[in-house]
C-alpha cells in the first residue's frame, strides 16, 4: 500500500517505523514541554499518547507534522525529517487538531473542498469524495449549511472528515472525541478502527482511558513531557496494576482514620480525598477483609483495573480531575 519514494535531498533513515522519535525535545525558553522522548510507531499500528493536561501531547503532534520545530533529538516521519521537509511530511498526514479550526463562515461542503485543494486534489476527485466524507461524518443533510450553524459535535466530525480528504497514510488525532456525546464517540471509534483495518496508521492523544483502551494497540503514558510507561493497554494494566480494584468510601471525615485501619490490605492502596482504592487480585475477597477489620464503608465497588489506575500508580495523580 503506502510506498515511499526515496527522498533526493535526505537519505531515508527508516528503521521500520513510520514515525520514529529519539530524544525528541521541545523547550519554550526555560520550560521543557517535551523532555527527550523516544518512541517508534509501526506501519498500520494505532499508537496512543495518554497523559494529563500540559503533558506535551499536542506539542509532540505538532512536531511530527513539522508545524513546530523541535529543540532537540531526532524525528523521522515516512523517512523524512519534518523540520526540513514539512510539506512532504504533511502530504502523508491527516491531522485532527485539538481545537477545531474550520472556516465558520463558509459552507460545510466548501470546507472540505478548500482543504482538499491544499493537497492539489482535483475537482473531479473531490466532488464524489466529499459526498463520501459527509456520509462518513453523518453530515450529508448539513452539506449546504454554514459551519457556524453546526453543533460542537458536528464540527468535530467535520474536522475529522476533513482530515481524511487526502486518503492519509498516517492520521494524527489530537483528542478526537473531546466534546462528542457517548454515542458519537462510539461511532467514531468504530470508524477509526475500520480505517486502521485498511492500513491507516493512527496516532491518538487522549486523556480518556477508555478511548486509549478502545483505540490503541500500544501507548505511552506521558507526564511533564516524559514517558512514564509504554505498552499495550493490557500490558500496562498487568505491569502497573492488579487485576481488580476495590473502591471504598467512608465519607470524607472518616477517610483518613479508615486508611489507618486498612494498612497493608491488598497489594497497594491509593488514598484519595473522597475514597480509598485497594488494589487486589480479588476485589470481593478484599472487601470481606475490610468488613473483617470492623469497618463498614458507606459505599463500595469492585471493578477491573483500568489505565486510570496505571496512571495513578505512575504519577500519584488522577488523569482527569
Amino acid at each position: 500500500m503506502p510506498h515511499i519514494t526515496p527522498s533526493l535531498t535526505s537519505a531515508p533513515t527508516r528503521t521500520g517505523g513510520v514515525v520514529t522519535a529519539r530524544g525528541l525535545t521541545k523547550r519554550y525558553g526555560d520550560f521543557t514541554a517535551v523532555d527527550g522522548i523516544d518512541f517508534e510507531v509501526a506501519p498500520g499500528e494505532s499508537f496512543g499518547f495518554l497523559g494529563p493536561n500540559g503533558a506535551g501531547k499536542s506539542t509532540t503532534m505538532s512536531m511530527i507534522g513539522g508545524v513546530l520545530t523541535r529543540t532537540g533529538g531526532e524525528l523521522n516521519v515516512m523517512g523524512l525529517d519534518p523540520d526540513r521537509e514539512g510539506p512532504r511530511v504533511r502530504a502523508h498526514l491527516g491531522v485532527v487538531p485539538q481545537q477545531d479550526n474550520l472556516d465558520e463562515e463558509i459552507k460545510v461542503r466548501d470546507n472540505l473542498y478548500v482543504y482538499g485543494r491544499y493537497f492539489g486534489l482535483k475537482r473531479a476527485y473531490l466532488k464524489p469524495k466529499i459526498d463520501e466524507l459527509l456520509d462518513f461524518a453523518q453530515l450529508t443533510d448539513k452539506a449546504g449549511e454554514r459551519v457556524d450553524a453546526l453543533s460542537g459535535g458536528m464540527k468535530r466530525r467535520l474536522t475529522i472528515a476533513r482530515s481524511l480528504v487526502n486518503d492519509p497514510q498516517i492520521l494524527l488525532l489530537d483528542e478526537p472525541t473531546t466534546g462528542l456525546d457517548p454515542q458519537a464517540r462510539h461511532i467514531l471509534w468504530d470508524r477509526l478502527f475500520r480505517l486502521k483495518e485498511q492500513g491507516t496508521t493512527l496516532l491518538v492523544t487522549t486523556h480518556f482511558m477508555d478511548e486509549a483502551e478502545q483505540l490503541c494497540d500500544r501507548l505511552i503514558v506521558v507526564d511533564h513531557g516524559r514517558i512514564m510507561a509504554e505498552g499495550s493497554p493490557s500490558e500496562l494494566i498487568r505491569d502497573y496494576s492488579t487485576r481488580e480494584v476495590l473502591e471504598v468510601r467512608f465519607g470524607s471525615d472518616a477517610n483518613a482514620a479508615a486508611a489507618q485501619t486498612l494498612k497493608g490490605l491488598g497489594e497497594r492502596q491509593e488514598i484519595l480525598a473522597d475514597r480509598i482504592l485497594i488494589y487486589a487480585g480479588d476485589g470481593e475477597a478484599a472487601l470481606a477483609q475490610v468488613l473483617a477489620r470492623g469497618l463498614t464503608p458507606v459505599a463500595s465497588l469492585v471493578r477491573r483495573s483500568s489505565l486510570e489506575d496505571v496512571f495513578l500508580h505512575l504519577t500519584g495523580r488522577s488523569l482527569v480531575d
Binding site: 510539506p87 493537497f119 463520501e132 466524507l133 487526502n166 485498511q198
Partner: peptide, 23 residues
Amino acid sequence: GGGATLFDSTLSAHAPEVSAAKA
C-alpha cells in the same frame, strides 16, 4: 448511521508525493 461508502470506495487520492509536489 451510514458512513459505509467511504470504506467501499473506489476513489483514491493521488500519492502524497504528488500532493507535495503540487503544493
